[in-house]
Design a protein around this nucleic acid. Structure first.
Lengths: 362, 362
DNA sequence: TTGTAGGCGTTATCAA
DNA sequence: TTGATAACGCCTACAA
């Protein structure tokens, strides 16, 4: 007959927080061994008498004992956790990137914490401070970032502060070169991707190619725009450069494109900084009866879900978001050594939204 | 002239883990006060002499002191965290839902931990155990779940175990009724959404309406299919029921639909369990030159991004994922009281993929 | 208002 | 192999 289960003993004259559940000492007492032995059993590797081990396990089961991970962490033996700091939890880039990084962390028995900054600097700083309090193993700073010197200095400060509490800052998908000597970064070839896409248009005979972008002063914009400029130079067509700026949403791109067309814009092809903007551009074109690609070619960037199902299916640049997330996770948890910048390649996916330049417009 | 900064003192004969950074005692010593005073300064509310406070703050700054959140949590005064358990970090439902729940947690100064189960029961159990170790404040079990009794029992076990360490289990977007007496649940009206959509088709004159679904034995399938059945009954058309099953991806839906059509299927409209399946169905229809909605009407569910940009724009049911996430976060952190089931309404978005039944086929 | 002392739950060391 | 003891960094009741 099993003994009645005694509620966890509360130390006499206790003044600590209210206890919930049993602790290691409770188990030890019930099993008739010392706390150290119980610890050894649950830590795993240590040699402990099978007889004692069994007693401990039985007592633990009866008491519903669950190791306290917080206490373990305080001793430096707990699970680690990586934090993922992103502007918004949306867009094509987010899901795959996060999923891959999470996969690495979880597979390693660690945690994945998700935080959104909404692009606000104050919030970003607050989140980093909070994460420092919790002794985050690593912080992944993800996405487009301001390219000015002030922000670079800010990031160096983040890195310094995070390192001061034993953490690590990793820059993901941001500027081309790490802006912090001590912080590793994982990135993909924004510039090369756009360059290849624009060269594709040039090879089809286009010369008057419009670039539709957003967020001047941010890394994604600068890097991708640079690809456009380089491609034009490759074909000695730099004089034909023309650009349009919008806020980044499909709506804003549609609006900007409409204005461009109504203003007599003469481009025969459009390179969009993101698929989202390409969707807006396509809308605008459809509204005006301009056929794609017969009258105008359109290229996007990201290869987000469903763009292959648009009418016409969108030609776009695919970035290796899954691999990016995986590598970022690996670097964050010191499963892959890296101090510099890792840059992953991009790939042009040619579908049906691009075609030869219209003859009458050549 | 500032005194040289002394490295954190390591207790003589220390045997604990390697220390990193300064602790409360270091600050106290440098400021010439007791640890209790420092604690009071950083805890915030306590009354402490402005003079002493200043000294403490100065010492902390010099030492780069950062409160140890882990130690705080052990005392029951740390930040809390809610864990989000989902099968996959993809799909239309995920981003908005997670973003909203994260927003609630972060706004409250708490954390948001993300875990994917990949639909594996073992992994789910492991994750919950790990989360119990870390004393998660709440665990959000998100998405479609098996409808069998064994799984219900399993979830009851989860709830019991989580509660035993002071946590809380919240069921989000799953079965219609909470399957655990003690666990609150937050859901939306799957059944009503499909029922309204199918009634919309019936009102347009359709009778032979095909239902395309996935994952029999899971809650999302059962609940949505039930809406289809009810709508047919509403119009005394239950004899016209016909269903198709696929794995859930657009590809599988396209394949299933192709087989249906090639087999002489005579439906004039299709109700798809998800937008993803609708995309596949549309592909299949386009391949065969079947016009939508002239020859066939199609309805989806989820209103995922871009379905308004398909050709034709998709009629679909929108679920309030953002609100769902917000409420789930609120309930998880006890910011909203709820023990039963919260059910949010859905909305039919009529676009251009649905139209009157073709005359010759009536 | 401040300091002292004891406790939160764990693990490492050292002696038995 | 086991147990006593002392950390880890923090909070709080109580006394001063």
């Amino acid at each position: 007959m099993p003994e009645p289960i005694v509620p966890p003993t509360r130390a006499a004259g206790s003044r600590g927080p209210a206890r919930v559940g049993a602790n290691l000492r409770d188990v030890a007492q019930r099993a008739g061994v010392s706390p150290a032995t119980v610890s050894r059993v649950f830590a795993g590797n240590d040699r402990v008498n099978p007889h004692a081990r069994e007693a401990v396990l039985a007592a633990a089961a009866e008491l519903g004992y669950v190791v306290n991970g917080l206490a373990r962490s305080m001793m430096g033996h707990g699970r680690r956790f990586v934090a993922f700091l992103v502007q918004e939890m949306v867009g094509p880039t987010f899901a795959e990137l996060a999923a891959a990084a999470e996969g690495v962390a979880t597979a390693n028995g660690d945690f994945f914490v998700l935080c959104t900054t909404h692009g606000e600097a104050d919030r970003e700083r607050e989140l980093i401070d909070t994460l420092r309090e919790q002794r985050a193993t690593a912080i992944l700073l993800v996405g487009s970032m301001p390219t000015d010197a002030a922000y670079a200095e800010r990031v160096r400060e983040y890195a310094r502060d995070v390192e001061a509490v034993g953490g690590k800052l990793v820059i993901v998908g941001g500027p081309a070169q790490s802006i912090v000597p001590s912080a590793p970064s994982v990135n993909y070839d924004h510039t090369g991707g756009v360059r290849t896409a624009v060269r594709h248009l040039l090879e089809l005979g286009h010369r008057r190619i419009l670039y539709v972008g957003a967020q001047p002063g941010f890394s994604t914009h600068s890097l991708r725009l640079e690809g456009y400029v380089l491609a034009l130079k490759d074909y000695r067509a730099e004089d034909e450069a023309r650009t349009l700026t919008c806020s980044g949403s499909a709506e804003s791109a549609a609006h900007a494109m409409a204005e461009y067309l109504d203003g007599g814009g003469d481009a025969t092809a459009v390179m969009c900084e993101t698929d989202n903007m390409a969707v807006g551009v396509l809308r605008s074109l459809r509204d005006r009866g301009i056929r794609v690609p017969a009258d105008m070619s359109v290229v996007g960037f990201d290869d987000m879900p469903l763009v292959a199902d648009l009418e016409p299916p969108l030609t776009t640049v695919r970035a290796p978001f899954r691999e990016l997330g995986r590598r970022a996770g690996l670097v964050a948890l010191d499963l892959e050594e890296s101090t510099g910048t890792i840059t992953l390649p991009t790939e042009l996916i040619v579908r049906s939204s691009t075609g030869p330049v219209p003859v009458e417009k050549k």
